[in-house]
């Protein structure tokens, strides 16, 4: 995996917790089901938490808990499913979420710019090549009609 954050390739400190796996020392990304099942324990634990959500998940399910997360990872089942864009925009605009929002799943380098315009500050690609291309694509446009979140 290649991670781009704020227009640079960076090392990923986070690990995604697979089902049944124990919490890592720090920086765990968990899904909504895991969070809901282990909330009090996780809060007591005080490790850094990230939440993995699907683009179609309604934000009401986790917006009350946003303060517990240093990262929200939004998963794209396919690159043509645009729900994640609206979710990211809503988290930034309506819920004033200021920490990392990461795009994961089926994401094309060609989409990097639009993703950052709606509020994603981190993009995960499956290859280094795709990551490098995405960096180029971030500069494809110098003008926009819409104001951006970032």
């Amino acid at each position: 995996m290649t991670l781009i954050k704020n227009s640079e390739i960076v090392q990923d400190r986070w690990s995604v917790l697979e089902e049944g796996q124990a919490l890592q020392a720090d920086h765990n990304i968990i899904d909504l089901a895991y969070w809901n099942a282990n909330k009090s324990e996780l809060i007591a634990n005080k490790t850094s938490l990230g939440l993995l959500v699907q683009g179609d998940e309604s934000c009401d399910q986790f917006t009350d808990d946003l303060q517990h997360f240093e990262l929200i990872a939004i998963h794209f089942p396919t690159f043509v499913d645009g729900r994640g864009y609206s979710l990211a925009k809503t988290l930034r605009e309506k819920y004033s979420y200021t920490q990392e929002i990461r795009a994961v799943g089926d994401v094309l380098p060609d989409q990097a710019l639009y993703l950052t315009r709606v509020g994603f500050d981190a993009l995960e690609f499956s290859t280094k090549e795709a990551g490098l291309l995405a960096l180029e694509k971030l500069n494809e446009f110098s003008v926009f009609y819409q104001t951006a979140i970032n």
Partner: peptide, 14 residues
């Protein structure tokens, strides 16, 4: 036209 052109959020609608 201007608002909708290259709209980052609404380019992958259903």
């Amino acid at each position: 036209r201007q608002w909708s052109t290259l709209h980052p959020e609404f380019s992958y609608l259903p």
